[in-house]
């Protein structure tokens, strides 16, 4: 089943960066993710390119296929159309920005094939 939208995507939600700084979700910049990942001991930032967007099996859901990192690992996630992803250099983007704005008051761009989203990997499991 698709991942439901968590409460922290609501405009005005307070997000704590890795250095302790607090920002509203709508004010986050690409650098905030990059800098937070740099000082994280567990997480590493990676880029995930949108390769396909298909209709999901549930109502209002989409299947998004990502190609992750240099190794182009394939990851497919099913989310609601309003689920926002953070695109490098662009900010919040969803498959249905009007709905994201309507439900969460979060300004969004349209998520498209070729967009490069912020994703995370564990630094090391070895």
């Amino acid at each position: 089943s698709p991942v439901a939208l968590p409460p922290f995507f609501m405009r005005g939600s307070i997000i704590q960066l890795a250095d302790g700084e607090l920002k509203r979700v709508e004010d986050l910049k690409t650098e905030d993710f990059i800098q937070s990942a740099e000082i994280s001991s567990e997480l590493k930032i990676d880029s995930s390119t949108v390769e396909r967007i298909d209709t999901g099996q549930s109502p209002n859901a989409v299947l998004i296929q990502f190609s992750v990192g240099e190794l182009k690992a394939q990851v497919c996630v099913e989310v609601l159309v309003e689920y926002p992803f953070f695109v490098f250099g662009q900010g919040w983007s969803s498959c249905c920005p009007d709905r994201t704005t309507q439900l969460f008051e979060l300004s969004c761009a349209k998520l498209c094939v070729g967009d490069v989203c912020v994703s995370l990997t564990l630094r090391s499991l070895r």
Partner: peptide, 19 residues
Amino acid sequence: VPVFPWHSLVPFLAPTQSD
């Protein structure tokens, strides 16, 4: 007011890759 960690905004943890 609830405070959420930055990494909760990233929807999935990608497969671990060797460095």
